[in-house]
Design a protein around this nucleic acid. Sequence first.
DNA 1: CGCCCACTTGAACGTGTTCAAACGTCGTGG
DNA 2: CCACGACGTTTGAACACGTTCAAGTGGGCG
Lengths: 260, 260
Amino acid sequence: MLSQSTPPSLRRQIPEADTHPLVRRLQSVVDLGSEERTAIRDLPMMVRELRADQDIVREGDHPSQCCILLEGMAFRYKIIGEGRRQIFAFHAPGEVPDLQSLFLKRMDHSLCTLTPVKAGFVRHDALRELLAGCPRVAGALWRETLIESAIFREWMAGLGRRDALTRVAHLFCEMYIRLDAIGRARDGKTELPITQNELADALGISDVHANRTLQELRGRNLITFERGALTIHDWEGLAAAGEFDPAYLHQNPDAESEAV
Amino acid sequence: MLSQSTPPSLRRQIPEADTHPLVRRLQSVVDLGSEERTAIRDLPMMVRELRADQDIVREGDHPSQCCILLEGMAFRYKIIGEGRRQIFAFHAPGEVPDLQSLFLKRMDHSLCTLTPVKAGFVRHDALRELLAGCPRVAGALWRETLIESAIFREWMAGLGRRDALTRVAHLFCEMYIRLDAIGRARDGKTELPITQNELADALGISDVHANRTLQELRGRNLITFERGALTIHDWEGLAAAGEFDPAYLHQNPDAESEAV
DNA sequence: CGCCCACTTGAACGTGTTCAAACGTCGTGG
DNA sequence: CCACGACGTTTGAACACGTTCAAGTGGGCG
């Protein structure tokens, strides 16, 4: 099956490669000074390896540290009522999925690994010190939390006002763009290590219906999705089916067009 | 109809009353120093009066100022596809609904008045100066945006995994608690100036179904809701029907129980 | 080899939608 | 004072999208 239209790659060349994943992530948004970079690199960080499907923090916890994803993916969720689960977000390497614990003592949801994960744990006091000393870093992280809010809103719009097929298509577009931005996508293909059950719980549908919707998308030659690998055969078609407009991801820090 | 159980009032006595709504709001979360309070009070603010049902900022705008709600209520929303609308949040006096514009140039959604509104507009550069000079104020505002994220997540859980009746009950519980916290509720009664159509668009249901669900809640003697006035007749019953647990609102800045 | 887990399929069912019409109330203008 | 229009609300009936339950398939890994 030939690719009818390939996804746009918005990946930007990063001026100065850096091995620290947090530096790399923030660097793509603001220009950090070298002192700021070293301040981040000097963060005391305890690295741990976790298996797939393992909670990192749970609802009700009072964490004293934050977790930086170094390798592997994770997701955040909450269980309500009798075992119904809502997934709020999928997280890729370089992200700090529980940054909020720095400001909100009690976790109102849980964080769980999707794959085997290598994660760095940084104590709150060390992070606070970093933020106090580096306002630009603080600003960049604050901005990240606001972008996450924008993603939440887009998911809300999907959950509230889009049908199942549109939701699935939309999620695939979003994840492709986000994974491409960190160099994890290529030629319409990317690893997206989630099961149909997790897909369903993120999109507010049953897993049976998630399965049927995937078949429909496949039947329209838009995607294939098997064993955690997503292939987009027709980006234009998928974006149209998903009503996808990437503006809400705020990927271009400055050059956002359409003046007021 | 006698009140079978009254909502808990979590309103805290504020040590030092202040007329500036932003000071009042932040004061209830952190202890501000007097220099910080005056820094906020000295913010150059342009006050405007707006009518009901009027957009303050629109998707696509590039605002150069933020808006502080002084009187009246507002909501944020986005239109997707052919006129389907999703409402993301309702805002009460003292809140800064478009704080994100300080960090994200382009609005990815719109902000609209629900009632006649008195709003203060503060230029971004003035706000940035305030945040640079008062880290505690910055922290408090950051915390507010994180609480808003928590509310978004709870709404997502509702949109994805709760039925219509539960969603309506849950929203009423949430709004009651939030409005009570700013002194706008009393004895199970509060102004909640939204139409059934807005209720439906917030909860991802049709307005016809919103109407029928309200009748059901009323039939169970849990609430009455007419002409923008919400009365909760049975708080326990409503909270149970709405699967409502206020933990996600993070109202107790410090004393959040259940150690890790 | 056998088990477990993720995925797949069918059929009945249910919650919520859509469409269309009518009602009530409030504010405006004749 | 009444007529009118606008808007929010209410009602009924047909319909659709997605759920639920239950059984079965298939692949990966101990």
